[in-house]
């Protein structure tokens, strides 16, 4: 495959183009601006739409419109911008509109800073918007995955008629790596049953209002069923040196990259460290995590760049059979491999 050295943010835009994404609507925000910049450079070359919206809110509503018209459509932002988009994302979920949202997380709360963090976990995973809904969340940890998982995001969005996030942090977005460029997608899915094309046969309704209480409950139950199917079919994880691991680390995005380094150092020191990396955060790899205690482990350590948001879900999955420890950094700080090794030694006496 042809290969190219590129930033994660650029790789995601390549992924979008290869996936047949026809429109990008976004608003500038560090550290996600390269996505908009790259889209503004590339999309017009393909006669596709790039529009810099007047606000994050406008951008997600433009996504709503384009998705309602059956287009594969992308927006990108970072924490404060995602906060603003949440209402629109709830509408997309409520109207069953497929769309892809890239969140390059930065430090928070408030204006925080533009350093890498993972503090958007809860606002993305727990439905930062109103109402009963879930979004599929993919967590790339390399430029290659920024391309590949963005393509996958479009596929899953269409398959389940649901918004899909590509959730990562400033490090993965800003980092350059070699990306092997896949073949463009052919044969986009047929959406003529519901999408609006401005034709006689496509006079459909895109809507999230159900005035009747029973109708709305029915719709919520349909959504719950859909999410159960997604949970069953779409969990993706990466295991690293898990075969003989006595201590398992759990982390996604940037922290999983550092964990890989930490595991290599620990192994040189004779410590049998391994990693379970969620690639999908929803669906969360709860069954995979729930089975970890069966391995007779010395410990489970969740490493995240947030205030325990991930470890909460890990412990929920463990259901009290074991309790995961937490090592976290915040504020734009990325844990180092040596710090993690020291923490492992301190916690588990190895």
């Amino acid at each position: 495959m042809p290969r190219k050295l590129m930033k994660g943010n650029h790789a995601a835009v390549y992924g979008a183009i290869l996936a047949g994404c026809k429109a990008y609507y976004g608003y500038p925000i560090t550290p996600a601006s390269e996505i908009a910049e790259s889209a503004s450079l590339l999309f017009p070359k393909f006669g596709r739409t790039f529009l810099q919206a007047e606000s994050e809110i406008a951008a997600i509503n433009m996504v709503y419109g384009a998705a309602g018209c059956g287009q594969r459509v992308l927006t990108g932002s970072s924490g404060p911008g995602i906060s603003l988009k949440q209402e629109g994302i709830s509408y997309c979920a409520g109207s069953a509109l497929p769309c892809v949202i890239i969140d390059i997380m930065r430090g928070g709360p408030g204006l925080g800073n533009i350093g890498p963090e993972q503090g958007d976990y809860n606002q993305v995973l727990k439905g930062g918007g109103h109402g009963n809904y879930k979004v599929i969340v993919l967590a790339p940890n390399s430029a290659q995955e920024m391309c590949d998982l963005t393509m996958l995001a479009f596929e899953l969005a269409d398959k389940y008629r649901n918004p899909v996030y590509v959730l990562t942090d400033g490090v993965i977005g800003q980092m350059m790596e070699v990306v092997e460029l896949p073949e463009p997608v052919t044969g986009l899915p047929d959406k003529s049953e519901w999408a609006i094309y401005g034709t006689a046969d496509s006079r459909h309704l895109i809507n999230s209002i159900y005035l009747d209480h029973d109708d709305l409950e029915r719709w919520n139950r349909e959504l719950m069923k859909k999410y159960a199917v997604i949970q069953k079919n779409e969990v993706r994880v990466e295991e690293y040196r898990m075969d003989d691991a006595e201590i398992v680390t759990i982390g996604y995005g940037s922290s999983s990259r550092v964990l890989r380094s930490a595991i290599d150092i620990a192994r040189e020191r004779g410590i049998k460290l391994g990693m379970l990396r969620p690639i999908t955060l929803f669906p969360f790899p709860a069954p995979e995590i729930a089975s970890l205690p069966d391995r007779g482990l010395k410990g489970i350590l969740t490493v995240e760049m947030s205030d325990g948001q991930l470890v909460d879900d890990v412990n929920l999955a463990l259901s009290g059979k074991m309790i995961s420890d937490l090592y976290n950094r915040m504020g734009g700080n990325v844990p180092t491999a040596l710090e993690i090794c020291e923490k492992v030694s301190e916690l588990y006496g190895v």
Binding site: A58, N61, G65
Partner: peptide
């Protein structure tokens, strides 16, 4: 017609992408 019901105040933003997606509509 084709119909989209949209969030409060955002009709022109939605109409923008609808028009871009279906320029003949």
């Amino acid at each position: 017609t084709g119909n989209l019901q949209v969030p409060h105040g955002r009709a022109p933003a939605v109409a923008t992408s609808v028009s871009r997606a279906n320029p003949d509509s």
